[in-house]
Design a protein around this nucleic acid. Sequence first.
RNA 1: GGGGGAGUAGCUCAGUGGUUAGAGCAGCCGUCUUAUACACGGCGCGUCGUGCGUUCGAAUCGCACCUCCCCCA
Length: 1121
Amino acid sequence: MQTPFRPVPAHPDFPAQEHAILELWRERRTFARLRAQNAGGPRWSFLDGPITANNPMGVHHAWGRAYKDLFQRFHAMLGQDQRWQNGFDCQGLWVEVNVERELGFTSKRDIEEYGIAEFVSLCKQRVLTFAARQTEQSIRLGMWMDWNDPHELRRLRDLLADDPTRVITVDGPRGPVTDTVEQIVGRLGMPELGGSYFTFSNENNYLIWSFLAECHRRGWLYKGHDTMPWCARCGTGISQHEMAEGYQEREDPGLTVRFPLVERPGEALLVWTTTPWTLTSNVAAAVGPALRYVKVRQGEQLYWLGRGTLKQALEGPFEVLEERRGADLVGWHYGGPFDDLPAVQQAFAASPDADGGPYEHRVVAWDEVGEDEGTGIVHIAPGCGAEDFQLGRQLGLPVIAPLDENGVFVPGFGSFSGRDVREVAEPIVERLRKSGRFYRVAPYLHRYPHCWRCGTPLVFRLVDEWYISMGPVYDQPRETLTREQVDASLRYQIMEVVDQIRWIPGFGYERELDWLLNMHDWMISKKRYWGLALPIYDCAACGTVTVVGSREELRERAVDGWEQFEGHTPHRPYVDAVKIACPGCGAPVERIQDVGNPWLDAGIVPFSTLHYREDPEFWRRWFPADFITESFPGQFRNWFYSLLAMSTVLRREPPFRTIFGYGTLYGEDGRPMHKSWGNAIEFDDAAERMGVDVMRWMFANARPEDNILFGWHAADEARRELLVLWNVFAFFMRYAGLAGWTPTGGAPDPARRPVLDRWILSRTAGLAAGVRERLEDVDVRGAATLISAHIDALSTWYLRRSRRRFSRHADEADRAAAFATLQRALVDLARIVAPILPFLAEEIYQAIAVAADPAVPDSVHLTRWPDGELAGLRDERLERAMGTLLRAAELARGLRAQAGLRLRQPLARLWVALPGGDLPERDALLALLADELNVREVALIGDESALVERRVKPLLPRIGKRLGSQIPAIMAAARANAVEYLPDGAVRLAGVTLAPDEVEILATPRPGTAVAHDEGLVVVIDTTLTDELRAEGDARELQRAVQDLRRDAELELDEPIELWIEAPTAVAERLAPYLGRLAAETLAEAVHLSAPPPDVAAVEVELDGGRARIALRRWFGEASR
RNA sequence: GGGGGAGUAGCUCAGUGGUUAGAGCAGCCGUCUUAUACACGGCGCGUCGUGCGUUCGAAUCGCACCUCCCCCA
C-alpha cells in the first residue's frame, strides 16, 4: 500500500480551505446524513431565537450563532436527535423603517398614499431578501441548520412582487405543495415546506391570536389611556421595553420662564423646562413640599425659586429677601404662559374649580421635585409627560393634549396649530419674550429618549393603547404570597416559571425576576402597518371588546368583508376589511387598526414552530426546549420575557430548561462598532480574511458574561494558536509521506508503546472526557482552555521530544509506534474540536483519517464523541509523573540560561531530587529529561543531600484560627529555618508544636549552589565543561550551521549534499569523532575537510575551539574531486 | 433617585482572608529548530480607585467617598 499522506502547506489559507470543505459537505450531503444517522435517537431540543431578517448579519450575530452551531454539533456527536430549525424574525417597525427609507418616505401619510397592500408586500420582500442573504452567511459560518435554498427564497420574493395570487407548485420534504405565492410564503417553515421558520407565517400569527384571546378571556387585556412616549416620525407609541434602548445624549434649550403670581403682584415663579413646546399645555407648577424656597430680588424683579438652585438657575447678581417651605407656596395662583390659546381656555373651562369658575394655574406639591437641575419648581403638563399625567390624575388637573399622531399641533393652539413640534422651540421663546414671560435660555445636554429605530427624539402624547395586565405587585416577600395572590397576578406566575429554569450566567435569574417585579403592563399595540394584525374588535356603539382567537372564529363571526380577506395572509390591509357582529349590541365592528408588538411574534415560537395546535404529540415531544442561547442585553425585557409570559399564560410551565446568555460585541478599541469610527468589521470581510474557524475560536475563548472586543489583532492571536495545531498536523503529513508510512499494522498495541506515546494518548483521553464535561455544563471557554493546553502539550512536549523518532534514523518499531500514536492523537483531537472548529477539524480528519481508511465515517461530524473509545488509554498516574518531569525540565532550562550554557552545549550531569523520592516509569522519564536537557546523565539525589536543606512551610489556612497572634513569630522562625524536627513528623517553631498535617516539609537549595527547587522537586546542573563536552558542543554547533545552509539553499528535506569543512587542524581533530553523525543528520554523502571550491558560497562558524568555514552543494551522485 | 457590576502591570483580564498578587498580549533579552518568518524561555519597584475600620494577617471582609458601565425609575 502506498502512503496516503501528502505534504500540506506550511501557511494554510484557511478561508480557501473552508470553501472547499463547504463544497465537500454539499457533495456528500454530510448534514442530511448526520440527521438521518441520529433520527430516532434521544432528543435534544434546541430552540433558535429568531434573527431579524432585515439586514446582512454582522460579526456580533456570528458570536451567538457560533454558540448555537457548536452546541448543536456537540449534541449530534452524542447521537442526539435534533430539529435543526433556524428562525427569522420578520414583522415590525424595523423592517418598515428600512422600506420607508428605500422609498424616500418621511411620514405615515406617504405610506397610505403609496398603498398599504403594496407597502406590506415590500416588507415581506425585504424579509425574503435578507433571509436569503443571512442563510448564505450562516452557511459560510459553518452553521448547520435545515436551510432553505437561498435562490428559492429570492424566487419567491420576485414572484410576490410580480403577482402574489399566482398559483405555483414547490417541492417540500413530503412532496410537492401547490398554493398561491402569497400563501406559500405564509406557510414557510411549516412541515410541508420545511426550512427556517418565519414569524410572519400564518401559523405564527394565528397562534398569537389564540394567546391574546386567552388573555382576554382571563380579563388581562385592556385599553389604556395615558401619556406615552411617542415617535412623531413613525407615528406610533413606544413601549416601556423599547424606551430603554433609545436613550442618547442630546442638547436641548434649557429654558427658564416666569410665571407671575396672581395674589402677589410683582412676584413670579421661575420655572425651568427642556421641552419648550410643552409650555403650551402647562396647567400647574410643582414644588417639593419639604424643600426650602426663597424670594430674591434682581433689579426690579422679584422671583421665587428653590434655595438650592440659586447658583445654577439665576443669571447675574441677586438679593435673598425671604425664605419659605415649599408647602407654604402650594395653592398660589399664577398666570400661565399661553392663557390666550383657545385649547387652554376650553380645557380650563371644562375643569371647574370648587367655586364653579374655570380652573386656574396653581402651585401644587409633588415629592419628586428635586434641586439638582432647574429652579426647584417643575412645570406640569399632564398631556405632555407620563409623570405629569400621573400627578394630574391624582390632583384632578385638566389635561391639554396638543399633538396629533404626526407630532403636529392640533387646532386651538393659535399660530402653533399645524406646525411640527420639532420646529416650535424658537417661536415659543419669541412669544414668551414678547409677553414678558422669558427669563433665560441656555443649551442643556442630557440623556433623552429617542426612537430606537429611526433616532427621532420622542415626545409624550396622550393616546389609547392596548395592554396586557401584569397583575398587582404585592408589598411583601414572594415566599409569603398565598396561592390566591399568585393566581391573581401574572407577574408572579411568570416568576414561578423563571424559578424552574437554569440561568447561565447565574445573575440572569435575578435580572429577569427584577424586571418582572418592576415592569408595567405590557403595551402590545402599535399604530403601524407591517406586523401582527391585533384581532381586537372594539365596539364604538356599546364598548364591548371582542378578541378573535383564530381564522376560523373570524370567519364564523364575519358579517362583512370576508371575501376581500379570503386567500390572504392575516396582514393589513386585507384583514382590516372583515367586520364582525358585536356580541354586545350586534353592530358591525371593525378591527382596531393597530399591529402587534413584535416580541409577541418571537415569544410564540415554542408553540408555533412545534405545531402546538395541529400536532400536539409532536409539540409534547419537543417542548420545552432543552436549551436556548441569546445575547443578554435587552432580552430580559424582550425575547426571554415574551417567551416566559406567553408560555405562562398558555401552559404555566417553562418554555425552556436552560438559558445561556452572553454579552455584547465591541470593536477592538472597546467601543461599539461604528463605520465612521473605523472599528467596524463586516461579517463577510471577517469570514474571507480571517476565516470563520479563527472567528469561532475567538468566540469560544471569550468570557460569555463579559463583552468581547473583536478585531484583526485579536484574530491574529487566535490564528497563531490554531497554527500550532496546524503545524503538528503538517509535520505528520510531511514525515508520514517521507517515511512512506501506512497505518496498516506494524505498530505495537498502545499499552506497549513508549512512555511518551502512552502519555499523549492518556492526555487525549482526558481531553475527550474533560471537554465533554465542560460542554455539557455549557462552559465553552472552559472547553477551549482545555483544548489550548492540550495543543501546547502535543506540540511542545510530545512532538518536540518525539521528533527524532519520526526520522529515517529511528528504530523501525519505535517509528511505527510514533506514527500510529500521532495519527491517533490527531484524529481524536480533530473529533474533539469539531463542534468548535468544524472546518479545521474536517480538514485534518479528511487528510489523516479518511485518506488512510475508507472504512471510517467520511466526515469528522459523522463520528461520535470519542471519550468512550479512549477511556482505556487513560493513565493519570503517568500524567502526574510527566507533570513533575516537565517542571524539572523548566527548572533546568532556567539554570542553563543563568549559567550561560546554551542547550546545544552538552553537560555531563544533572541531579534531580524527586518529590516523594521516586516517579512511576522513572528510567524512561529520566531518559527523556536527559535528552531534552542535553545532559549525558541524570542522577537521582535524596532530599537530604548536601545540596539541599529541609525547610518548613506552615499551612496557614490550617493553623491560622488556632494560633492567631502567634503566627508572625512562627512564620519568622520558619523563614529563619529555626526549626526542630520531632520524631513523629511534627515540628517545633518558635516554641509551638505543629502537627505533621499542619506543615509541608520542602527540600530547598542551600545558598550558593546552582540549583532550582519547586515543592520538593530539586534540580542541580553540573556546570563543569570538559574538552570532550566542548568538542561535542562544537559538533552540534556545526551541524546547526549546516542545516541553516541547507535551508538557505532551499534544499528538499530528503536531498543529499556534499559538504566542505575548512578548519585548523586542532579543531578538525576535535570534531573527527562526530563527523559520521554530522553527515547522517545533514544528509551529506561526502564530507571534505578542505577549502570549498571557489564557486560554492561559504560561511564562517564561530566554534569554541576556533573558527571554521563551511560550504555545501547539492549531491549529484559522485564527489566533485 | 433606587438596584447591580466594575475599578489590579502599557493593553485585556485572573486572583473569595494566608504573609512573596499572577496570566495573555505588546515591549526588551535570550533559546531551540530541516514543524523553517514555527515555537519555547526569561525579564514586572503594580499607591490592587481613595480613606477609615475588623483581623495575627486584607486585592479579598465592613463602612464612607470618587470614577465608569448596566438595569430600573
